[in-house]
Amino acid sequence: MLEKESNPTHSKSTGLPRKRFYRARAHSNPLSDSHFPVPVSPSHVDFSLHYPQFFPSSSEVSCSKKIQFADIGCGFGGLLISLSTLFPETLMIGMELRDKVTEYVKERILALRGSNPGQYQNVSVVRTNSMKYIPNYFEKGQLTKMFFLFPDPHFKEKNHRRRVISLHLLDEYAYVLGVGGIIYTITDVEELGDWMKSCLESHPMFEALKKEELEADPVVKLLCSATEEGQKVARNGGQTFQAVFRRIVPTS
């Protein structure tokens, strides 16, 4: 439970966890084998731990609700927090590789739940390598939105295969997204922006959203403003490059 007064890693005034106690290395290598638990399959994920209010463990009727949004490389979780109140009935999860950062997001959600009873019950976070274990968390066609906001750029050509968007990884994202589901990407690195866009364009199971569709989608506005990284870029007046695509049935 939350111990607002006695927890030194949390701010006394807001009860929220303070970032400086959760600082971590700037980058983790997604290729190295790590040592966190991985669910054997999506049916092994215990949702009552993540969303206790939606899945009360005592009740016999099992909730059939499924996670619909995934924020990949969620960092400190700003996007999830914004989405949580915008879509209060939608379950969403952040996936983050860095241990300390994941802990921070966990604490942040718990604190928000504590100070806003009934709210933020639909958001959670897991520590995992999304490049390896997406199919262990989500069933085919389960997701309606996936987010890749300000992913690590991995500039060197030799390291391009560490990028979280690639033609091959898009196969897996297309698998977990239902038809009509949307993938949102944004970066302040022009070259990475071009890369993500060209991967999506050459993939037979994605098509770009039209200008009108982008304007009508309330989520698009959050891309450059809701996350910590986005705010940093905005503060420095940096340019951003986004690519928003829809999962389609491939024409064969």
């Binding site: 054997v40 399959s41 999506p42 199919p135 262990n136 085919k140 898009l170 196969d171 897996e172 297309a174 698998y175 993939h203 037979p204 199971m205 491939p250």
Partner: peptide
């Protein structure tokens, strides 16, 4: 590109 299933 079209994954039919994962057997996990």
């Amino acid at each position: 590109h079209e994954i039919q299933s994962f057997c996990l």
